[in-house]
Design a protein around this nucleic acid. Sequence first.
DNA 1: TGCAATCCCGGTAACGTTACCGGTAACGCT
DNA 2: AGCGTTACCGGTAACGTTACCGGGATTGCA
Lengths: 345, 345
Amino acid sequence: MDKPATIKDIARQLNISISTVSRALRNTPDVNIETRKAVMALAEELSYQPNKLALSLKQKQTHNIGVIVPNLDYVLATMVRGIDEVALEAGYTVMVCQSNESFGREIVNTRRLLDSLVDGFIISVSSETKVFDHFKKIQEKKMPVVMFDRLIPDLQAPGVRLDNMDGGYQATEHLAEQGYKRIAILAGPKNLGISNMRMEGYLNALKKYRMKPDPDLMIHCDFNQQYAYIATQELLAMKKRPDAIFTISDRMAIGAMLAIKEKGLRMPQDIGLVGFNNEPVVSLVTPAISSVDQPAFDLGKLAAKLFIETVHNNSDMSMVEEVLRPKLYVRESSLRIAPKNGRSR
Amino acid sequence: MDKPATIKDIARQLNISISTVSRALRNTPDVNIETRKAVMALAEELSYQPNKLALSLKQKQTHNIGVIVPNLDYVLATMVRGIDEVALEAGYTVMVCQSNESFGREIVNTRRLLDSLVDGFIISVSSETKVFDHFKKIQEKKMPVVMFDRLIPDLQAPGVRLDNMDGGYQATEHLAEQGYKRIAILAGPKNLGISNMRMEGYLNALKKYRMKPDPDLMIHCDFNQQYAYIATQELLAMKKRPDAIFTISDRMAIGAMLAIKEKGLRMPQDIGLVGFNNEPVVSLVTPAISSVDQPAFDLGKLAAKLFIETVHNNSDMSMVEEVLRPKLYVRESSLRIAPKNGRSR
DNA sequence: TGCAATCCCGGTAACGTTACCGGTAACGCT
DNA sequence: AGCGTTACCGGTAACGTTACCGGGATTGCA
């Protein structure tokens, strides 16, 4: 009653061999129906639970997935929920590790999980990470890796991402259509792919609307509210200040909003603002901030599905790159002209 | 080069026994300095990583902690970060599972992790859970369990929690001191301990300020924004409507705020509002909402420390209950009288 | 020189499980 | 009677690791 029961215990009590017990429990054909019943009954009675460790050791797979994320903010937590959903269904358990946007922490976490704890990884890279040796090490061990949200071009692995370029395009196009003439962008660190893609969309939209990109209006700053606040202050202090700002994240949009309010400028009249992620907060502030929504939950699910597929088919899916479409939600912060059809939520 | 190296490989290449290799790798005294060096060198060269599975199987512990949370909102994600911090330091890896506030999901997750995947649990229970058999099963296996945030009185296990009564008291006292006379409370489901404690603090404060509790002003509703919105609408439709509302969470405070604004009432003049959790959002909305802050990160760290202690000392800490103090942050939504000393942030 | 202590090492069992091989009995068929 | 087939079961090795026991060789001391 103290130690958990094993197949040995069952075998001993039933006076049969452990091999037979093992077979009986696994529904292999070569076992008498009576003995099987007896085994099953006793297993139930002893509340036998197969030892996952022994199993994993034997067949060299753990049925665990290592998920590494830079943090657990709204968007990523939602994605993780999506991953969890699919993984559980497929018989996998996920191990979530936060790198806290720290390169060192990311390496430690990876090493940890690599120690025969997981069968593979689903990864969203930290913004600090510029070298990917620790991820390549995973692939050397022939472990499947799926990237999500923030992809790594250098890494030969499948990935799921948002069409960030389209998102940047939608946001900027909307601002242009609303009559804004000097549209600034608050982007993230230069090594961050998602940031660069969104900026590319921004540039494309400018081109389409025949606006000349102005380097002074394209700011790179850290991915948080505080830096966006400062950057916005500087933008607004220019002699030819921008009349609209597109920020690469909602956190940054909030920072920008605070700076704008402090300066006494009104949205959307004096200045337009569009964020990215569509976190719940943006519809609660005044004025409500327009934002590009990403299907985070679905993105997580897709990543997990891709992982499962890679494991099952054991095929090379390294060239697969699923792209999901974002959708702009227009709110007061950028709406100067009455919309053709109603939206927001 | 394909399969990961084992101590067998090292032993074979060095023409010594696996026992010696094992000893050398583990710094046990009984091994020649030369052989040790050789072993270490070869281990390095083959990039040998000890197989955690085999180790766990052998010594019957995994050095994993199962963390079960109802969701990953701001507060819980912060707590998990705290747990992670301490656990990593102590050589443990955490497995986070979300129950999505679902009883069934909680059971599934627990069973999963129970299958010899973890050494014990750090748990915050789902709001749906009313029966705790699945947690008692853990204890039957002699596994350590630490509860955090939402405790279970029925369970003989150590826990870390907020002084929710004090939090409720602080919030209500503040409203009373601001001159509000009819203070309502939006509480959570009746089976949720943290909600009841906060309400008790509310009642204590009322008593202290000689205000009679009015059942019509004490609403139980589900833990989210939508229900709080509806409940607030009903409150405001009363003939003798409340002039202040204390909500048990910030989500609910947001819901209440929307209903208040819609009704055309002003905060803090017409009605006062205080939330709970001090999520970033409350300082961003207009007016900024007063809220009771909880030291979520510290609370998580403390929970993990308690866990580690339980494992190491192997002593019965089931009666330990650490209580952390909350702190009210006063903002515009409830500030009618100039404060004696500056605060907010 | 003899004996014990010390240093270092190897063999084996065990953790719980499954894969593989082999074996026994019963049966049916020619 | 002899043979092959089927149905069922047991023994053993193996996954990678450590704990334990039992050595042999070398050293120290009397």
